[in-house]
Amino acid sequence: MIAVLQALADGLMIGGVYGVIAVGLSLVFGVLGIVNFAQAEFMMLGMYVAWFAWRYLGLDPLVGAALSFVAVFCLGALVQRLLIQRIMKAPPVAQIFLTVGLLIVLENSALLLFGPEFRTVKTAYQTRALMIGPIFVSVSYLSAFVAAVIVSGGLWLVLTRTWIGRAIRATAQNPMAATLFGVDTRWIYAVAFGLGTGLSALGGGIVLSYSSVSPTSGSQYVVLMFTVVVLGGLGSVMGALVGGVIVGMIQSLSTLVMPIQLQNLALFTIFIALLAFRPQGLLGSPSR
């Protein structure tokens, strides 16, 4: 019983971070209608930004994650204006080619610039844990979870309470009508792509606080990201956050019955089952 509670608590905390990583992918699809296969590579770049901020500026990765957001937001917005904008109305095949190409370029650029080694950060709280009742709570998981909750709340506020947020939602739902009322949708597409990739990068910075980064970190997270987003319904921001928590819990519960090395087996099984039986996601509606 305690083992189950422990697994649920771990799953909740890790899952909250998964939500932040995946919400960017969902946002990009919801607003631009593009499946960004390079999304996890933007996360990897965010992890490197946070690592360099820790190494050379002495910033905690949870603080450095803010820098990851800003840097990758700018990069993402630029990539949208220069590359993605050209294939906005192109057939899906062209869109897949471009974003997969971007994935390869980003991964190999990272290899060239940063080398193949795994890099980790050291923080004072990394090995600490709290006892809450019978449950062990790792301080780095807990602080990562708190950061994820703050980011999700901030995103919700921006999307519902600001003019730019309303314009983003309006553009996602009906770009023609948004244009009629003064929204420059080309600008919104750049902002939304920057915001989406920036959020994944921010999530990457948070992940770095208890994990490591290498040029192939993206491929470690890409299936997880897509599972979360498909679970929550592609394009749904709320769905991605909830989906993240569910995936975190499934992963963590699976370690109770399977060796920890097989935790991705549970993930893949669920991903395939979802695609087979409920491709619109648990929260998504069939149309989108």
Partner: peptide
Amino acid sequence: CVPEGRHVFGQM
């Protein structure tokens, strides 16, 4: 403009 087919923002 009130466009043909209304085009309200359905989920807002």
